[in-house]
Design a protein around this nucleic acid. Structure first.
Lengths: 337, 337
DNA sequence: ATGAAAGCGCTAACAG
DNA sequence: CTGTTAGCGCTTTCAT
């Protein structure tokens, strides 16, 4: 690879001049400017980002931490992040944490040594003190999708309003005539699942439908645990006429269980999901779901992160945190009647 | 962040000594070694990877280029890559190309300026001259899943044997009594789809079943185009009793079309997919499919890439290319009878 | 308007 | 066994 000195000597100027024309920070005589540009062309010169990073203290790289890129919603979010990053000259490093705090911490440590400019995090579960510490240390950071209640107002967050979204979903179910609505309730450690649960409860209450604990299936060991619970709940004396799931993958399991016991969807029971992942439209019947704007969540996160990076660059510190609450969208397909 | 000089002065030694104990390249007096280690502890010192990279000419970063992380098979492959990269101290940069050669080239250019140590590519379609050029320039590189015939023997490749895999899949269909086997044939520009087509033809021939062009559905505009084609083919005077699809997403579309016209799977027609993506087991009925070891393909690619990187480090040039052909595995679920 | 020089943090001869 | 020195490629004062 040719370096700045090669270009400089070819153009008959000094390295500083080359640097100046390339960065356009300072005026350079038009004639020499042209000569430099020509030399750049001829040598197909590309500045060494590493050297620049070392000098400037910023790497033009951001890091996205997710539990696993294999989980349905993260590819969408990640793609949103990557698109805006790329358009702004940033590269994105992918970190899968498996929700393991140790892995997460190790990653953070490693990223710091690379002078990573910022983090987009949708990884941690309960205790996120190391994440909070990161912001406290001055690293631009945005929490996407997952966050703790106490982080509100203190960290940059991009998410939907899970309470309201679930509320609207369940209300839709009620409006369309369902009275016995079961819930596939995801892991309670996650704030957004608790919010979806709250939304479910509130919609029930507002709709004049009694809450029945027998109808709430609480996740024990992964999504698969809903298979058995679904069948149990359907065998109740008074089985549900609808099942609201707090994520689409859970809906797939529920539908599976339903199908295997000969229950027809939506004739016998409606199923309403939450997320709208890629395959929600591909299952049979196509899943009605509360759609999160996943790609947009990623894009907005990245935009916010870049905003923080620029702000910090100019002011030496992070801007006040802002929270983005994105709109959900009820997508009615054929799993609800 | 504290740097090597801080540690050095705290330990009362020179920077080189600190470097030496940290890299273990050269012997250091045990006593001073301990003092250095202690200073490292106290200051929580982490070497600046950027500076090291600049000096050493290698960044400990690899790049994975995929059409889009949103496409079903790539999260799996990417995860395989990332896991082995991480275990070996490498970070992975994610690049989505949308199969756009311009984007791909721009990315390659950018990655070079970051001193990326190597590339894992499953992106390009027909003309991959810029990819070949990359290897010719001495960049470690492995093609995964996608490659052109002419690359065999010249590039490092990780894939399955698409011909054999398809052959076995179709043979299975024949063995289980199917006689009219339709094919959902993916984009012919892709070598592996052509190979799967060849496997289909050969299995038919070997099974004494006449090839019928009316039964091969050729992709026109994305996977969705199989919806209409499936319905057409089912309305033939002599409709198929099985449909082999060259990828799982196509199978989902086919199943959908089938369902919408009241055809029962597998009673009326069997469906056999290819890939075994995450959701193949979640659809109804669960999809029988020729399973590619996607995660493993990623892992093997990364291992090979690291091998190349190490070899180059020691010998100044790339090792001879090796090709890994991984085993597929026929997963029989309930979409075939 | 441009060049010289210093320095980002690290490693690797080269001395001693 | 350890310190000094130079340099990876770039940007940025500071002179001129």
């Amino acid at each position: 690879m040719t370096n700045i000195k090669d270009v400089a000597s070819l153009a008959g100027v000094s390295a500083s001049t080359v640097s100046r024309v390339l960065n356009g920070k300072s005026y350079v005589n038009e004639a020499t400017r042209q000569r430099v540009l020509e030399a750049v062309q001829q040598t197909n010169y590309r500045p060494n980002v590493l050297a620049k990073s070392l000098k400037m203290g910023q790497s033009k790289m951001i890091c996205i931490m997710v539990p696993s890129i294999q989980n349905s919603i993260f590819p969408e979010i990640t793609r949103g992040v990557e698109d805006v990053a790329r358009k702004n000259g940033f590269s994105v490093i992918l970190c899968n944490t498996d929700e393991d705090t140790a892995v997460e911490k190790a990653y953070i440590d490693k990223m710091k040594t690379r002078w990573i400019d910022g983090f987009i995090v949708c990884s941690s579960i309960g205790d996120a003190s190391h994440i909070r510490a990161l912001r406290a240390e001055g690293f631009p950071l945005v929490l996407v999708n997952r966050f703790a209640e106490e982080d509100i107002g203190k960290m940059d967050i991009v998410s939907v309003d899970s309470f309201q979204a679930a509320y609207n979903g369940v209300k839709y179910l009620i409006t369309t005539g369902h009275r016995r609505i079961a819930l596939a309730y995801g892991r309670e450690e996650l704030f957004f699942y608790r919010e979806r649960y709250r939304g479910y409860c509130q919609a029930l209450a507002d709709g004049g439908i009694p809450y029945d604990e027998a109808l709430v299936m609480r996740e024990t060991s992964g999504s698969d645990s809903f298979y058995g619970m679904t069948q149990e709940v359907m065998r109740l004396d008074s089985p549900p006429d609808a099942i609201f799931t707090t994520s689409d993958p859970k809906a797939f399991v529920v539908m599976h269980a339903l199908h295997d016991m000969g229950v027809r969807i939506p004739r016998d029971v409606s199923v309403l999901g939450f997320d709208n992942v890629n395959l929600s439209s591909m299952v049979e019947p196509p899943l009605s779901t509360v759609a999160q704007p996943l790609y947009e969540m990623g894009a907005v996160s990245a935009k916010n992160l870049l905003r923080q990076i620029r702000y910090k660059e100019q002011n030496g510190q992070l801007p006040a945190p802002v929270r983005h609450v994105l709109e959900v969208n009820l997508v009615v397909r054929r799993s609800t009647r």
